[in-house]
């Protein structure tokens, strides 16, 4: 594949540079750390700060969710690699307004270690830190081992809801409770049709044979739970929906929010083809879709494929999900 590259080793720095230039109405680079993106207005006194972070290569995640009534500061790692403890610490510092900081991130070994170290350092500086670890990927471990599951696109709902609670003046404990409830109400599944390539490596690190798909693939190409023949979009959509809904506690009054994200190299029109069948399958179960996002919200470099996330809604989650926000990846104004 032909690519827009300078030196592949500089790709993350150049991505961050382009990102803050393009979106300087919403975000800026941290003064002391070029791997921390900070929302304008972060650190507002008395408001709980929201921090996330993760490896690069998932754009617009993670930094695209920094903005107004969204994440306050984002730590950026190397491609597919956790940010440093120092970057998480600098993000926590930037987000701190004296009311504590909620670090809402995904369940990966490196992120767990680096967030733990950063939280310890922040506590030593007198900043109260609490965390929620996203684990919405149903295929990454069984239902009896939810604590081992990876965090994927459900993190977007977790950030949105945690940040909305903070924007409404919630305490750190309330923000954590809402964010935890959000991720507990989310289930996701990924399907990979072709592998992704780290530009500095130059070739895919795993293969998906033509004519097959990896059901349950991870956000970094972690092999899925099953390799299956590539079916029609309708059949794939039905299978994805089944995997997600069979694992999800029944939503109150049958209300759900749906997010279909491309993994980086799938055309938008195919995502809508997929969504059409997903919506049919969800509605066939008697559920009502209240909110839908379809697009490249959380990608995996140039992987071909998509993820489906369903969040069960109640009045609280629905109201928080509707809160105005403005960040480069998501612009949402109040519905009338």
């Amino acid at each position: 594949m032909q690519r827009f590259l300078n030196n592949p080793d500089d790709i993350v720095d150049e991505t961050v540079a382009g990102f803050v230039r393009a979106h300087d109405d919403l975000v800026r680079l941290d003064q002391g750390n070029p791997r921390v993106v900070v929302a304008h207005g972060a650190g507002q006194p008395g408001r709980v700060g929201i921090v996330t972070g993760g490896g690069a290569g998932h754009e617009p995640a993670f930094m695209g969710y920094a903005g107004r009534n969204m994440v306050d500061a984002v730590a950026v790692g190397e491609l597919f690699s956790s940010p440093t403890a120092k970057s998480f610490l600098d993000a926590i510092r930037a987000a701190d307004g004296g009311a504590g900081v909620a670090v809402l991130y995904g369940n990966y070994a490196g992120d767990n270690m680096n967030v733990r170290m950063a939280a310890k350092m922040a506590a030593a500086e007198g900043i109260e830190v609490a965390t929620v670890v996203a684990n919405d990927d149903v295929c990454s471990a069984g239902p009896d081992e939810r604590e081992r599951r990876r965090g994927v696109a459900g993190e977007i709902f977790m950030w949105k809801i945690g940040a909305a609670r903070a924007a409404r003046g919630g305490t750190l404990a309330e923000v954590i409770a809402s964010a935890q409830k959000a991720i507990d109400s989310c289930r996701s599944v990924g399907v990979g049709l072709a592998p992704c390539t780290l530009p500095a490596v130059g070739h895919p690190n795993f293969q998906i044979e033509p004519g097959t798909m990896e059901l349950g693939i991870g956000h970094h190409g972690e092999p899925g739970m099953r390799v299956a023949p590539l079916g029609r979009a309708e059949a794939i959509a039905t299978e994805m929906t089944g995997l997600v809904l069979d694992d999800l506690p029944p939503p109150e009054a049958g209300r759900v929010a749906v997010l279909v994200s491309g993994l980086g190299a799938t055309a938008m029109n195919e995502l809508y083809v997929l969504y059409d069948s997903i919506a049919t399958a969800i509605e066939a179960r008697g559920l009502r879709i209240e909110r839908t996002l379809v697009g490249n919200y959380f990608t995996s470099l140039d992987m071909v494929g998509a993820t489906l996330t369903v969040m069960a809604l109640d009045d609280e989650l629905s109201e928080l999900l509707d809160t105005d926000c403005a960040c480069p990846a998501l612009l949402q104004e109040r519905r009338v």
């Binding site: 491609l79 780290l198 690190n205 795993f206 190409g221």
Partner: peptide
């Protein structure tokens, strides 16, 4: 190192 990591991980070990 990246090659080995790519077989069961995400393939970034050698690069990083």
């Amino acid at each position: 190192l990246s090659e080995i990591d790519g077989l069961i991980g995400d393939g970034d070990h050698g690069v990083n």
